[in-house]
């Protein structure tokens, strides 16, 4: 009896314990889960709502994002518009102009938005030369900006500067006349209004399309002939 009674008592006690403990564990688990869910939801809501939104650019968005005109533009818009347009028109290049992309070795001869010639060229190599016997240093970049054709030469001569001898590790010639070379600049040269730089022909036609010059613009023979015909003194040259 006792044994049976004990066993029964023991079983009953276990059941009771289980019945009491299970919900407690469940409650704890549920509470923890809720806290976890709530916390992570809160964090994710903050995370998702913080940072940058993303919008497709619509007409409405563009209109709402416009900068407000100044007082003078508001009070007399017609005069302000006419004055501004007059300034811009006065700066536009007249007739033909040359555009040079020195990074991609391209040249365009344009008249307004119309392109009359697109050519491969050779622009500056961008390399650096230091005079081992002095403090002089050269960076062989093609200059950037707006320039104009300052002079035009047929059968131009080239006077080799010091860097040409330093680069080749050769002594400087004793006579100035020994620096002058014929034919290396091709048939024509268009001198720019930045000293020492020009658009000219080349003997190294195999290297056209690569950055191999010391800053000048080298053009192939046929393209140079077109440029020569359509680029009088004063023509604008844009180099970027």
């Amino acid at each position: 009896m006792t044994g049976t009674g004990n066993a029964t008592l023991y079983d009953v006690t276990n059941d009771d314990l289980a019945a009491k403990k299970m919900p407690r564990v469940l409650v704890v688990v549920l509470v923890l889960l809720s806290i976890l869910l709530l916390g992570s939801s809160l964090f994710l809501a903050v995370f998702l709502g913080t940072g940058y939104d993303s919008r497709i650019i619509t007409e409405e968005l563009l209109v709402s994002g416009r900068q407000a005109p100044s007082h003078s533009e508001r009070s007399d818009p017609q005069t302000a518009l006419a004055e501004a347009e007059k300034i811009t028109e006065g700066l536009l290049p007249k007739k033909y102009f040359i555009v040079i992309d020195r990074v991609h070795n391209r040249l365009w001869l344009r008249e307004g938005e119309r392109t009359d010639l697109e050519a491969l060229i050779s622009a500056g190599a961008g390399s650096v030369l230091k005079d081992p016997k002095g403090d002089r240093e050269w960076v062989f970049d093609t200059p950037m900006g707006r320039f104009k054709v300052k002079g035009r030469r047929e059968k131009p001569l080239w006077t080799a500067p010091d860097w040409d001898y330093i680069e080749a590790n050769e002594p400087f010639p004793k006579n100035y006349a020994d620096r002058v070379e014929e034919g290396s600049l091709g048939e024509y040269a268009l001198d720019l209004d930045v000293p020492g730089y020009m658009i000219h022909g080349t003997l190294y036609t195999r290297l056209i399309g690569r950055n191999v010059s010391h800053g000048c613009i080298r053009v192939g023979r046929d393209d140079l002939r077109v440029l020569w015909k359509k680029s009088p003194v004063g023509s604008a040259v844009f180099i970027f």
Binding site: S54, L61, L92
Partner: peptide, 24 residues
């Protein structure tokens, strides 16, 4: 890319969107 009121080269876009900074 422009200079003196003249475009020198055009670079095509294939898409665009705008984003504003936000908090909550």
């Amino acid at each position: 890319l422009c200079h003196s009121g003249t475009f020198l080269r055009k670079y095509k876009l294939s898409g665009a969107s705008v984003q504003h900074r936000r908090l909550l």
